[in-house]
């Protein structure tokens, strides 16, 4: 009696499961006959290894909306924050490399993470860096209405009072800290004399600078734009070789007399290295044309982000080059863990 009931309930459960499976299967029917297998035929997960609301998250959502519409398949943005981006990255690397789990990454979840870690949880070889969406400079920021009007003012003051310089950064092994170290090297100031003030990110750092609690912040243009436009922060210089279109009046470091310090904040798309080459190509070419589409670039502009597409080769070279430089810095200044 009992077992009969049990089996009938099993059957009910199984039926329910089948019905549900059917629902999700219907959408898969259409496909085109090409040499490469059709892609995408089902929703894609775009994993963002940071909490919602940050720069990379917003850009990724814009990408997901644009490409999702173009391909006619939903691209779900899935935030998996934690451990400086390692948690989300690892979740992509352990998922099936079928091209339906895609990673949105940036400098802090790759170069900074890998350069700072003794036992990195993954290596660059695990990732197929497909292309960048955003590639923009950092800005040297100080409080408005203070004693620093130009980069030269700051340089002179720091040379005279290295012990009084405080700068905000998300940690010892972060691109911001590396940029500050390179700047101090360039103007001949001993890094061990200045003080790093660790923080949680832009929403923690920027009010501290605007309130005069911390002297210097190095923040990417997206994060900086709000309080700069509000007149609370003064941008002294950008870390790119050319001026930023978002801050056309702000000189570059080189133009301010600080030589050989270039760094950038990029956001891009990566796949696990085992993913099919055809999928990587599809993403690459779609992103290339996306960044030429005025509708998308206008969207990036509203996010205060500076779009730039670097193809897989350029992207990989950029990251490898940065990683080598930063690993060297970490060794030299013992910043690692």
């Amino acid at each position: 009696m009992r077992s009969k009931k049990f089996y009938s309930s099993l059957a009910v459960g199984a039926l329910a499961v089948l019905a549900l499976a059917g629902c999700s299967g219907v959408a898969n029917a259409s496909s085109t006959a090409n040499a490469a297998p059709a892609y995408p035929t089902r929703p894609i997960q775009l994993v963002v290894p940071f909490a919602p609301g940050g720069g990379t998250d917003l850009v990724s959502r814009a990408v997901a909306a644009y490409l999702g519409q173009k391909w006619g398949k939903t691209i779900n943005v899935v935030n998996k924050p934690g451990a400086g981006g390692a948690t989300g990255t690892e979740s992509v690397l352990t998922a099936s490399p079928d091209g339906y789990t895609v990673l949105a990454d940036n400098g802090s979840s790759t170069e900074a993470l890998l350069s700072g870690a003794n036992k990195p949880p993954f290596t660059l070889k695990d990732l197929n860096l497909v292309g960048t969406v955003v590639n923009q400079p950092f800005v040297f920021l100080v409080k408005s209405g203070g004693q620093f009007k130009t980069m030269q003012d700051l340089d002179a003051w720091v040379k005279a009072n290295p012990g009084q310089l405080t700068f905000g950064s998300t940690g010892l092994s972060s691109v911001q800290t590396y940029t500050v170290i390179e700047w101090l090297q360039s103007i001949g100031v001993d890094y061990s004399k200045v003080h790093m003030v660790p923080n949680n990110g832009a929403s923690d750092l920027l009010p501290q600078i605007a309130g005069g609690h911390v002297v210097l912040g190095v923040q990417d243009v997206t994060g900086a734009a709000g309080l700069v436009k509000a007149g609370q922060l003064t941008p002294l210089a950008v870390t790119s070789t050319t001026r930023s279109p978002l801050f056309p009046n702000v000189p570059t470091l080189a133009q301010s007399g600080v030589k050989n310090v270039v760094s950038s904040f990029w956001s891009g798309i990566a796949l696990p290295s085992g993913a099919p080459a055809s999928v990587a190509q599809k993403w690459g070419s779609a992103m290339a044309s996306m960044l030429k589409d005025p509708a998308f670039t206008a969207k990036l502009k509203t996010l205060n982000a500076q779009g730039q597409y670097l193809d897989s080769a350029q992207f990989t070279a950029l990251v490898k080059n940065n990683l080598a430089t930063y690993t060297q810095l970490v060794k030299q200044y013992k910043l690692g863990q």
Partner: peptide
């Protein structure tokens, strides 16, 4: 009982499937 539990389980799973997924 077995049947009632199975029916309820089916219903809640279906509702969650529709809403969440």
């Amino acid at each position: 009982g077995w049947i009632r539990a199975a029916v309820y389980a089916g219903i809640i799973t279906l509702v969650l499937y529709v809403v969440l997924i």
